[in-house]
Design a protein around this nucleic acid. Structure first.
Lengths: 247, 247
DNA sequence: CAATAAAGTGTCATTCCGACACCAACCCTT
DNA sequence: AAGGGTTGGTGTCGGAATGACACTTTATTG
């Protein structure tokens, strides 16, 4: 720890020294936090880890950590996610930069917040390593006490997500590459927190050419098998960024 | 300058020292940049200042600068706007945090980017001080060469603005507190870069109760005077965040 | 008082949207 | 083999919203 501190100070010195014309550094820390969503048990879930040290020892938090000196923020977010959860995500978007001066009681640390989406079965495949972090899913609408300003961050991420699924293909990243229309509908219902009419939903999705049949069926349990679909990029592209799925 | 450097290092040391449990600082600089829009000559305009030193000496840039140690980002943005342009804005929103490692050739500096809106006559009142900064309006769709990643930032801000005027009262901040419906329509036309039908536009605005008559008229030039309106908060609130003005 | 220039106003045809209910297909049980 | 259970899958219709469209009004100026 002492060595790390010395290193940081050497870095600071070098940075200040090598560019005589550069204005002085303000020692503001930069962290990223990642709100990782999935849908499990027909519920929107957020991945939380345990905090094992001060501050906020014993509370839960979203995965996060300091950004390295020459690391892009999105890379930091992915690195931290991988380290704390073992997951690789394919949807990762910057959410907001949280900057309250006292959001970290130790010193000034900005949090550049991101949100990410994974399909629920990513769990089974990659197995969230219980490791030291105690990563686990929690229902997004019934969260325990959280460290830092993470409750606010999750709130903001949920709001953003509600908007995003209406005019981007975000929802598809909460599903496998093939899915049934009922599964797709459930994603929208869970995120929007309202029931949708099955026929109207299908009319929209199909008239926008957002999906195409794979020709295969999902047979599951004791009931009629459902047709499997896959997402069609061209649908969203052709629609050109307007609002697409409004319910 | 040397003193400033010493101060920065002292700060860094203090920060690292006072919290033995705090992880080491990464010396990443934090700046804010502000894309300030107005509408002038029926054109969307961006305020640019001259760069008078390296890097990018001689180019134009949006107002920006380093954040102070205990300063919230929005405060920094307002402080810098005031210093470089003399303007106080009432609409200021965080846009995005730009983080390319080499966006500042001297060293790693994040830019938390904001966009702001002012009514065009703010100019005449407060008189953009030509001062050292050479602040001046430039048509947003015909910009000169810009410092840093500011061209990309402006692009992002314009995209955001296009969305925002559809579901927030942003457009009204580009007008005086009272305005004619034609002026309001021109704001939408300029930002969306498309002509709108006068009667359909008025139908929407009035059916949503976004405006109320002041009872006064604007007489201007050689033509029929127009009724003056003012914005009604309740309109947007009642509409509850859905899409309101879609053309 | 004529010319000019923007302000202001209504209709109609089309499309979009939301509400609504039943049969089909499969599996399992008996 | 028949029947029950469960989800999958489909069409219509009435009302609302949308987009296209042109003329009259009201002021000023010469």
């Amino acid at each position: 720890m002492k060595d790390a501190m010395k290193d940081a100070m050497k870095d600071a010195m070098k940075d200040a020294m090598t560019s005589p014309d550069a204005p002085p550094l303000q020692p503001i820390g930069v962290a990223v936090d990642v709100i990782l969503f999935t849908i499990l048990d027909d519920t929107l879930q957020v991945l939380l880890v345990d905090r094992l040290s001060q501050p906020f020892d014993g509370l839960r938090a979203v995965p996060g950590g300091l950004v390295e000196r020459r690391e892009e923020l999105a890379c930091a977010a992915r690195r931290i996610l991988r380290a704390q959860t073992g997951l690789d995500v394919d949807w990762l978007e910057q959410l907001y930069t949280f900057d309250a001066v006292d959001r970290d009681p130790r010193r000034r640390v900005l949090s550049v917040s991101w949100y990410a989406l994974v399909a629920p079965n990513a769990l089974e495949d990659e197995a969230v390593p219980e490791s030291a972090w105690g990563a686990a899913w929690h229902p997004a609408r019934a969260l325990p006490a959280l460290a830092f300003d993470h409750a606010r961050q999750i709130e903001a991420a949920m709001t953003r997500l509600r908007y995003k699924i209406e005019y981007t293909p975000a929802a598809f990243h909460l599903l496998d590459s093939t899915f049934t229309l009922s599964e797709l509908q459930r994603v929208y219902e869970v995120i929007l927190a309202q029931e949708l009419d099955k026929r109207n939903f299908r009319r929209r999705v199909q008239s926008l050419d957002l999906v195409e049949e794979t020709g295969q069926l999902r047979r599951e349990g004791t009931r009629r098998p459902a047709r499997l679909y896959r997402f069609r990029d061209e649908g969203f592209e052709r629609a050109g960024g307007g609002v697409l799925l409004r319910f």
